[in-house]
Amino acid sequence: MTNLHDEEHSDVVHAASVGSYLANYFALLGLLIITVAVARVDLGILNMYAAMLIAMVKTVLVVLFFMHLGKAGRLSRIWALTGIFFFLIMIGLNLTDYSSRHMDATSSPTQPQRGGEQPPAE
């Protein structure tokens, strides 16, 4: 009754074929070569986006075919997405500050004038 490899536990045992692991591995190697190759071509800002895109594809491959997130149950999938979601919140809301700092800098020259209008100290 306590043997994990019985039929009744088939939904927690997930062993894909060796071939699928190898295929995934070579796909990852291919992407590694592509990412190095792309980095050697100057595309300006696109270089970073390309590198991140490839890294994300690699991550999806690892998560789906090595970590079997697809078979890990709904709860694990929700949590994995939760992690990414809050990570993006952290970056995104930080960027609302950093991407708009320059707007403050352009409006600042008015401030000394306002200071000059203050009545002299008694």
Binding site: N47, A51, I54, A55, V62, F66
Partner: peptide, 24 residues
């Protein structure tokens, strides 16, 4: 530990282009 190990691998997948492959 496999899940953990793949995660460590994923971190590196991002670190490599972010640190080693910056153009120009």
């Amino acid at each position: 530990v496999g899940l953990y190990w793949h995660f460590v691998d994923i971190v590196w997948i991002f670190l490599y282009p972010l640190l080693y492959l910056i153009s120009k």
